[in-house]
Every structure is written in C-alpha cells, then in structure tokens.
Amino acid sequence: MTETTDGDVTIAVSTVIFALRSDGEGSAASLRLPLVRRIRAPFDGRWALPGGPIEATESLVAAAGRNLRETTALEPNYLEQLYAFGDADRSPYERVVSIVYWALVRSEQADLAEGKNVRWFAADELPELAFDHNLIVEYALWRLRTKMEYSRIAHAFLGETFTLAELREVHEAVLRRPLDPANFRRQIEASKAIIATEQHLTGGRHRPPRLYRYNTSVELTDNGPLGRS
C-alpha cells in the first residue's frame, strides 16, 4: 500500500480483487484474490491488498484502476468503491485512511496477475495480512455475497454468453453452497434477467447446452459496473 500525505493524515487507495480460479482441469473453481508481498516497513514481508498513490489530478476510481494495472496488470470488468477504513490504530507509524475498492475479473484475466511478489489466495483462507486488510476482505466478501442474491453481478465473472450451468457454478462458488439446478433455472428464468440465444456450447459429449446472455433492458437493484455506487 503506497500513500500520499495530506497534513497529519495519509490517504491510500487499495483494492480487493475477486476471481474464480481452480487448481487444474477437472477441479471446481473457488473464489480467490491476489495479494502483494510488502517489501518495506511497516509489516515488511507480510501479504497485503494491492494499492498505490493518488495523483493530484486524478479521481479516486481512476487511481484505483491505474494502481491495479501497475501492481497486478489487471483491468477489472467491475470496479466499485467499497468503504473507507480509517481507525486511528490501523497503522503503527501514522494515521492512514484507506479508500477501498473491490473488483471482479474473469478467470482468464486473472492469469495476468502473476509475479514474484503477487500470489493468489483462497478468499476464505487468508494468512494474517498487513494493517486491517483481513477485516477489509471480510467486508468485501459480505458485500459480494449479498449482491449475488439480487443483482446481475455474476456477469462480471463470465463472458458475454454463458450456459445456465456456468452461471449456477458462479453462484455456488461465491455463496459456498450447492444450488438445486432445477430451482436455480426457474428462479433465473422468472427474473427475466437473461435471454436465451440461438447459440449452443459445442465440444461436449452430450447434447450441447444453450448459451444465454444478460438482458440489459431489465432494471435490477444494482449499483452497476465501473465505479457507480
């Protein structure tokens, strides 16, 4: 986490990035996030959320996006301001207020975030992180799982088209519980949030499943992508 200072208070921008990743072909995908190993005090050597400085002429969301590109090479499909964290004792040396964003990326995009000081961790099985970053991740997980219940946020983990099974697997991975396929289909179709295309997924052994896309004309209760909150 890099900071800029304004008087006695330091302002920082950090981002929680979520992606669905698996350990290999045939294994189920799980919710994971990249962390960056700190190379200076405080908390030298400890893992932390990626972040960086705020330039004098850029907005907060622009700073979050730029620092993600610089630290992890990621450009998320979904980037939203999460919360401001500013407890007086969150940093041992000075008063630091962090403006935190959360981002969602597809699994193929997540492969870009690899490097000597970058590592992906299971979102629910983190080591002790720098500052109060464990608390921040917990809050981001709660926000993500809450929004999965009523918004089209799962779209950020998928391509433009997807099968119902792929959509259900996203919900199961994020919510950490199995969902009945028939009930899930009924609920999704009743919401009119998706539209069946004339395309089918090819390459499988069985009857190719139909591909769907999100219905952009349906208004759902959702803050929306790319910084609207």
Results as ranks from 00 to 15, higher is better:
124 D>E: 12
175 L>C: 06
98 S>E: 12
126 L>A: 12
119 R>E: 09
172 E>Q: 07
129 L>Q: 01
80 E>C: 09
227 G>D: 02
172 E>N: 00
59 S>H: 03
97 V>N: 10
206 H>S: 07
217 S>M: 04
84 A>N: 10
193 A>Q: 14
67 N>Q: 12
79 L>R: 02
194 I>F: 08
222 D>L: 04
43 F>N: 12
153 I>H: 02
157 F>V: 07
127 P>M: 03
33 L>G: 00
152 R>S: 13
36 V>D: 04
29 A>Y: 12
137 V>E: 00
21 R>L: 12
127 P>H: 03
28 A>F: 13
63 A>C: 00
88 A>F: 06
19 A>E: 04
116 K>G: 01
137 V>P: 06
149 E>Y: 09
149 E>Q: 14
224 G>I: 09
206 H>L: 07
201 L>A: 10
4 T>K: 14
144 L>E: 07
13 V>I: 11
52 G>A: 13
221 T>I: 12
19 A>F: 03
9 V>H: 12
193 A>T: 15
186 R>Q: 13
14 S>N: 05
74 L>H: 03
225 P>K: 00
97 V>S: 09
126 L>R: 13
26 G>L: 01
73 A>P: 04
35 L>G: 06
64 A>C: 07
40 R>S: 14
115 G>T: 06
174 V>Y: 05
37 R>P: 13
159 G>D: 08
55 E>N: 09
99 I>L: 10
54 I>S: 04
126 L>F: 13
75 E>W: 06
151 S>E: 00
142 W>P: 00
3 E>C: 10
93 Y>I: 08
74 L>W: 09
43 F>M: 08
96 V>C: 00
216 T>A: 13
217 S>G: 06
183 N>S: 15
172 E>I: 07
104 L>S: 01
33 L>Y: 05
46 R>G: 14
178 P>T: 06
20 L>K: 03
139 Y>C: 06
53 P>V: 11
26 G>E: 05
204 G>K: 09
1 M>A: 11
131 F>G: 02
70 E>G: 07
78 Y>M: 02
226 L>Q: 07
31 L>Q: 05
119 R>W: 07
151 S>Y: 01
29 A>V: 02
204 G>D: 03
67 N>P: 01
161 T>E: 15
68 L>V: 09
132 D>L: 06
116 K>V: 11
220 L>K: 03
33 L>D: 01
52 G>T: 01
21 R>Y: 05
4 T>V: 14
112 L>H: 14
38 R>P: 05
101 Y>K: 00
224 G>A: 06
5 T>C: 13
175 L>N: 11
187 Q>A: 14
170 V>D: 05
213 R>W: 02
179 L>Y: 11
13 V>T: 07
121 F>A: 10
193 A>K: 11
182 A>Q: 08
33 L>V: 03
111 D>K: 15
224 G>W: 02
178 P>N: 06
107 S>H: 11
162 F>N: 04
210 R>M: 08
201 L>P: 02
115 G>Y: 11
24 G>N: 04
137 V>G: 00
142 W>F: 11
214 Y>T: 09
87 D>P: 06
68 L>E: 04
82 L>N: 03
217 S>D: 14
56 A>H: 15
73 A>M: 10
88 A>L: 15
111 D>N: 13
129 L>R: 09
172 E>T: 04
146 T>F: 09
165 A>P: 10
124 D>I: 06
15 T>K: 02
52 G>E: 04
196 A>Y: 08
101 Y>G: 03
136 I>A: 00
14 S>M: 06
108 E>G: 10
